[in-house]
C-alpha cells in the first residue's frame, strides 16, 4: 500500500472541502473495496477522507412512501432493519447477500453505489427500484446516476449522503453469485410500482447495471413469469470472462428474471 494521509472530517461540508482541495483524494466509506484495492497497489490516493465520524450520514427511516437510507449505513443494518424487512423485503434480502457477514458489517450503501462495480448488488437495487441518490449538491435519479463501469454522475467534490427508495408494490432480487468472488455473476431485480415496471440487471453488462426494456414491456401486459417466456436478452455486448460467457449470462438473465418475477408476484 502506498502512503497516504487520513482525514476524519466531522461534517459533509468539511469532507467536500477536503475532497475539492486535495489533488488525489478518495472518500473512505466502508472500505471493503477500496482497502483491498489499495493493498494491491491498484489505487494510490494521496489522502483518504473517512466519512465515519460524520453524524447523520447513517440510518434508516420510513418517510411517507419511501425508505430513506443514509449513505454510511452498513449492509448488515439494511439487511437486519425491521423497517426494510417489512416494507421493502427485496432490499433487505439483497443487502443480506452482499459479500459475507463480516464485509456486511463494514460495507456501506453509499460506498457501493458511488463505486458502481459492474458486479455489485446495490446498483441493481437503485436502478431496479427507481431510487433517488441524494448528494451534498443535488438529487440524482438512479436512471441518470450509473454512467458506465465504475463510472457515475457524481462530480469531483460530490458526496452521496442518502438514498431514497420509493416503496414498490412488488419486488424481488435474484442473484447468481460468482462462485469465487461471490459478487453477482448476474443479478436481476424486478419491481412493480403502480404502472411502472423495472427490470434491472447487474453483473452482466459491459457498462454496468442496465434495464431490460423488452422484459419490462412484456411484464406491463401481465406481471407473471410466463410473460417472459420466449424472451431473451441478446448476448452481444454482455460481459464474458472465465466465470461466464456472454451467452451464459444472457441465458441467466432470463432465468433469474423469471424467478424474480415469480418471487415478486408470489
Amino acid at each position: 500500500m502506498y502512503a497516504f494521509t487520513l482525514h476524519r472530517p466531522s461534517s459533509v461540508r468539511q469532507a467536500a472541502n477536503l475532497l475539492a482541495k486535495s489533488e488525489d483524494a478518495k472518500l473512505l466509506a466502508g472500505g471493503q473495496t477500496l482497502i483491498p484495492t489499495m493493498k494491491q497497489r491498484l489505487a494510490s490516493p494521496a489522502s483518504l477522507i473517512d466519512l465515519s465520524l460524520i453524524e447523520g450520514l447513517s440510518g434508516i427511516e420510513l418517510r411517507g412512501r419511501s425508505i430513506v437510507i443514509g449513505a454510511m449505513t452498513r449492509h448488515a443494518e439494511v439487511a437486519d432493519s425491521p423497517v426494510v424487512q417489512e416494507n421493502l423485503p427485496a432490499l433487505a434480502e439483497l443487502a443480506g447477500e452482499i459479500g459475507d457477514p463480516h464485509v456486511r458489517n463494514m460495507g456501506t450503501i453509499g460506498g457501493s453505489l458511488a463505486n458502481n462495480d459492474p458486479n455489485a448488488d446495490y446498483p441493481a437495487a437503485a436502478l431496479g427500484l427507481g431510487a433517488t441518490i441524494v448528494t451534498n449538491k443535488r438529487r440524482i435519479a438512479a436512471d441518470e446516476f450509473f454512467t458506465g463501469m465504475f463510472e457515475t454522475a457524481l462530480g469531483a467534490d460530490e458526496i452521496v449522503t442518502k438514498v431514497m427508495f420509493p416503496l414498490p408494490k412488488k419486488a424481488a432480487y435474484v442473484k447468481f453469485a460468482n462462485p469465487a468472488s461471490r459478487y453477482a455473476l448476474v443479478g436481476v431485480l424486478v419491481s412493480k410500482r403502480g404502472r411502472e415496471i423495472r427490470v434491472a440487471v447487474t453483473g452482466a453488462g459491459a457498462n454496468g447495471v442496465f434495464r431490460v426494456t423488452a422484459f419490462e414491456e412484456a411484464l406491463q401486459r401481465r406481471f407473471g413469469p410466463k410473460s417472459l417466456d420466449g424472451l431473451s436478452v441478446p448476448a452481444a455486448g454482455l460481459n464474458s470472462d472465465i466465470h461466464g460467457s456472454a451467452e451464459y449470462r444472457a441465458h441467466l438473465i432470463g432465468v433469474l428474471a423469471r424467478r424474480a418475477v415469480a418471487a415478486a408476484a408470489g
Partner: peptide, 14 residues
C-alpha cells in the same frame, strides 16, 4: 460485531 481486521485501518478505530 465481526469484521475482517485486514480491511480496516487502525486509525479508523479510535
Amino acid at each position: 460485531r465481526a469484521i475482517k481486521s485486514c480491511t480496516v485501518f487502525a486509525l479508523q478505530l479510535e
